[in-house]
Amino acid sequence: MKNVLESFRTSIRKETSGVSIPFIAFGAALNLSLGQIAGLLKLPVYLDSIGTVLVAVLCGPWAAVIAGSVANTIGSITFSPPSVFFIPTVIVIGAFTGIVARHGVFRKWYTALPAGVIQGLLAAAVSAPISAYLFSGITLSGMDFLVMFFRAEGKSILLSTFLQGLIADPLDKAITYTAAWVIVRQLPHRIVIRFPRYENVFPSSD
């Protein structure tokens, strides 16, 4: 037990030191700003976790959990008070991405894309109860019409929010993971090597 705790502590310290700290802050700010790009390009996706995914790949799962949680807290202060209640979702996103990135998922597009779809399914499963019980399925996310459609079909709030998540989240996270793969693939080796989880992008034999 002591060893497990010590390894957690070492892991957290490794992921939240040096170059990681400003990059975690950047990841959090990127999550909050990318909705603007989606809006400018009129894309029907949220793209609100790309910063968390990048931090998870380059710094690790703990750092990603911090980035996501900070982003949602700031979202609550600035423009969307309910976003703080979706912190469990970003914890799952950060942790899952950090874990799959360790297995080299972000080295190839054909592994990143399905991982994004799985991530979307997980995010939908975690968000659905929060959205259903706290906000009755309405979060003004742009996909609320789907919740309304399913409810009009006679489905419960929980099932409606889950079905809405199943339709929207896998696509959103697949695009997010692919975008993260494109970004990390183009990063110069000399910069990536400074991050604690550089081996997620370039195998150690490189």
């Binding site: 170059v19 700290i21 990059f23 950047f26 990127l30 390009l41 695009i175 494109v182 990063l187």
Partner: peptide, 28 residues
């Protein structure tokens, strides 16, 4: 439009990466 996402994202991330390195060193 999805393809147009990348030419917008890449300059944004790259410009901050080098800043991260300097800032990380300064913080330490």
């Amino acid at each position: 439009r999805v393809k147009a996402l990348f030419p917008m994202l890449l300059p944004l991330v790259f410009s901050y990466l080098s800043e991260s390195l300097e800032r990380g060193l300064a913080l330490e």
